[in-house]
């Protein structure tokens, strides 16, 4: 793009054949050019500069490739450490519900279930709020002097460490929400999702706190997308007599869908990988319960709570579950990127 464009410019102005080099291949061609002897000192300086240039190119290339190699290395290293567990339990690990350090028999189905369910609850709560706030902050509902502090405050939520949110969940949120759980349980108890004895440390609690954590991500990306839409869309819809709501729902949100879906998927990945909040709030109970008001476990809470005092096979099993989590988040992330790319192409 930029680089390609400037190549042409330089070729036109190439006064002594000493053009900046864009590909490593053309470097040797560049050093041949100058012939005049009275340019000797300049020549020397230029060759030094071009050496610096090349050196810098290779230095940054090595850095970029090195960092890219880290991902492959992470997968390799975790996979290698998990190998004993993979060999022993195979794919059955994903479908077994036993986690028994005494007998050394492990299966992670309850944790995988808990991870997916809590992230789903978080998304269910965070997407409407996040998109709503993003719309509110972009569509001139209130004057700027109110909008700026609000968006400032919301961006600061991102800065809150997860351990702080976890604490807040334990000491403030759970006592606060318990009566509501009771009411929900007594009125909607006939739905399996709200059945059983309601507990503070539960899948639902974790889902709500995770929602608070991921709302800022959804807001900031959705807001960026809505701001980048061409103003003609808004003006056109308004000129056709659409109300603001219709403009937003029928025109702006469909036009910005790629960014919104992308932000939702990224938030999903983030919710699945969150550790401290999960370990502090989910209740760490190794079972699958349909009711959201019962305690459960997530992969991250399993690793955080057991890694410290685990034996050899148990560590391998924990790493295996870590590998499963990583594959899940990578799949979600790749899926998000594909969606964004696809919609961008359509536009």
């Amino acid at each position: 793009m930029i680089v390609g464009g400037s190549t042409i410019v330089i070729n036109v102005n190439g006064w002594n054949g000493k053009q900046p080099v864009y590909e490593c291949k053309t470097m040797s061609a560049g050093t041949e050019g100058a012939t005049q002897s009275n340019r000797g000192s300049l020549e020397k300086r230029l060759s030094k500069q071009s050496l610096l240039d090349q050196g810098f190119f290779w230095l940054t290339l090595v850095m970029a490739i090195g960092i890219a190699a880290v991902l492959a290395f992470v997968i390799y290293e975790i996979g290698r450490s998990a190998l004993p567990a993979i060999q022993t339990f195979g794919l059955g690990f994903l479908f077994s519900t036993t986690w028994d350090p005494v007998q050394n028999v492990y299966g992670a189905l309850p944790q995988i279930y808990g991870t997916l369910v809590t992230s789903a609850i978080a998304l269910f709560l965070a997407v409407p709020i996040g998109v709503g706030v993003a719309v509110f902050l972009t569509e001139d509902f209130v004057p700027g002097y109110i909008r700026t502090p609000i968006s400032f405050a919301i961006e600061l939520i991102v800065a809150i460490p997860s351990v702080v949110l976890g604490l807040w969940g334990i000491f403030v949120f759970i006592p606060f929400i318990r009566p509501f759980y009771q009411v929900l349980n007594s009125t909607l108890g006939w739905i399996p999702l709200f059945a059983g004895v309601p507990r503070g440390y539960s899948l639902l609690t974790l889902g709500i706190i995770l929602a608070i954590m991921i709302v800022p991500i959804i807001i900031s990306i959705t807001r960026g997308t809505l701001l980048s839409l061409p103003p003609e869309l808004r003006q056109g819809a308004m000129a056709m007599g659409a109300t603001r709501w219709e403009t937003i729902i029928r025109v702006l949100i469909p036009a910005g869908l790629s960014g919104i879906i992308g932000s939702v998927m990224l938030a999903f990945g983030r919710a699945m990988g969150e550790t401290m909040v999960a370990a502090m709030l989910v209740g760490n109970s190794n079972r699958i319960s349909i009711s959201l008001m019962n305690p459960g476990a997530t992969i991250t809470s399993l690793i955080a709570s057991q890694f410290g005092e685990a034996g050899r096979t148990q560590v391998a099993a924990l790493l295996y579950s870590g590998l499963v989590l990583m594959v899940l988040t990578l799949l979600v992330n790749i899926f998000a990127e594909m969606i964004i790319k696809k919609f961008q192409n359509v536009e």
Binding site: A69, L71, A72, V74, L266, E274, L325, M326, V332, I334
Partner: peptide, 12 residues
């Protein structure tokens, strides 16, 4: 790779 690296959970 960098995009996916950003998505790897911190505990990993």
């Amino acid at each position: 790779n960098i995009n996916n690296l950003a998505a790897v959970p911190s505990i990993i």
